[in-house]
Amino acid sequence: MDNTLSSTLIWMVIIGMGLTNFAFRFTPLAILSRMDMPEPIMRWLSFIPISVMGALFAKTILLPSLEYVGEVPLFANPGIWGGIGAMIMFRLTKSFMISSVFGVVVYVLLRFMLGM
C-alpha cells in the first residue's frame, strides 16, 4: 500500500501546526504575564504543575500497565518498577538525569528478563 502523501498537503499541515502551536504557547504567556492575576487564580495555578505531573505519570506509567490487568500481575510490570526506581533515585540524588537513566535501565532490564 502506498502511504505517500502529497507535498502540498504536507506543507499545509506543517504550516498550520506551527502557527497553532506557537499561538497556544505564546499567547497566554505574553498576555497574562503582563497582567495582575487575582489571588484565587494564582492559587488555582499553583496546583496545576503537580496535577499535570500526576496525570502524566498515570498516562505514561499506569495506563500501559492497566492494559495488561489480568494477564500480568501489577508487581511484575516493568513500567511501575522503572517509575518507582526513578522516584527513589531522585530522592537520593536530586538529579533528573541520573533518575531518568536509572528508570530506563530498570525498565529495559525488567522487560528483557520478563521477555516482553
Partner: peptide, 10 residues
C-alpha cells in the same frame, strides 16, 4: 521510557 521516568522523578 526516559520520559516516563523523568515524570516520576518530577
Amino acid at each position: 521510557f526516559a520520559m516516563a521516568a523523568m515524570f516520576s522523578a518530577l
